[in-house]
């Protein structure tokens, strides 16, 4: 029992585990240019300790030593540091709201650019591609699907998912107001569902970090779901700043069901468009 820990809201400086994490993340950034320094630490700490145990290291300092000297370890560590959880049409009501409230606005543009930030293994991208095809917007839309994890991006480009997930995906699609049958978009082979490659013909998959990279395109809609939850407030502000810069006047920003701009310094730049679904619209003068 550590009796010395003060109940003072200002955390005591110099706690060994805090120092180790900071140094490890700094080492990863300097050596591999993956920047997790602005991530929400409670979750990072847990996951780094899981990695530490997996790699049989007694301390995070020992893990740091190995990460610096064994580059192949970084690829594995990346899977601990990034969380890949997604579904097709996750939170169907979000996609229903896009379909019913946002698509009518998007229809008024002759061409569209949509940024799926933190696309993970691609489920969100395919959801959008199917939604836009059903709504007749596919041919005028360019999608950017970005993530920091190259392994995830590869899976996103492949568009292959375990067949046992398809029941949930199909139900989600139906609840989102789907106008077609999800089975129209994939074929099955060897216990997997392979999504039609025509769905990604208007999609650019790219390595992009919300922590270190800049804006690369002007977009009409940014969807970034369950990514900001892993960031601390300062990094959230940076990411939201990128979306703000990328979006056209009155462009749309969609977040995860429990993410909010309420605590952001940039909340003034957006208005709530559909609050329950965390859909925001960039203000005229922002």
């Amino acid at each position: 029992m550590d009796a010395k820990i003060s109940p003072d809201p200002h955390r005591p400086v110099g706690r060994t585990d805090d120092i180790e994490i900071r140094l490890l993340l700094e080492a990863i950034f300097q050596k591999y240019h993956y920047d997790f320094r602005g991530y929400a630490m409670a979750s990072v700490k847990r996951r780094l300790n899981q990695a530490r145990q997996k790699f049989g290291c007694a301390t995070l300092s020992a893990l740091q030593d190995r990460v610096l000297h064994e580059p192949e370890l970084m690829t594995e560590l990346l899977s601990f540091l990034t969380v890949q959880v997604s579904e097709l049409f996750r939170d169907p009501q979000y996609f229903r709201t896009l379909r019913e409230k946002v698509i009518p606005h998007l229809r008024t543009y002759p061409s569209l650019k949509v940024w799926i930030a933190g696309c993970s293994t691609g489920e969100e991208l395919y959801s959008f591609a199917i939604l836009f095809r059903e709504e007749g917007l596919e041919s005028r839309t360019l999608f950017y699907a970005t993530d920091i994890n190259p392994e995830a991006l590869k899976k996103a480009e492949a568009g292959i998912y375990d067949l046992d997930r398809l029941k949930l995906f199909t139900e989600n699609h139906r609840l989102s107001g789907g106008k077609s049958s999800l089975s129209d978009y994939y074929r099955t082979a060897y216990g997997a569902a392979v999504f039609d490659k025509s769905l990604r013909k208007n999609c650019v998959f790219s390595d992009h970090s919300l922590a270190t990279d800049a804006v690369f395109a002007e977009t009409h809609l940014c969807s970034c779901r369950n990514v900001l939850i892993y960031f601390d407030c300062a990094l959230q502000d940076r990411a939201i700043g990128l979306f703000q810069s990328s979006l056209i006047r009155k462009g749309f920003l969609g977040l995860g069901a429990k993410e909010t701009l309420r605590f952001s310094r940039r909340s003034e730049a957006f208005s709530e468009f559909a609050r329950g679904e965390r859909l925001y619209q960039k203000r005229d003068l922002a």
Partner: peptide, 9 residues
């Protein structure tokens, strides 16, 4: 910093 955060891990 005495905030709550969420995670899908």
């Amino acid at each position: 910093d005495r905030r709550l955060s969420l995670s899908s891990e």
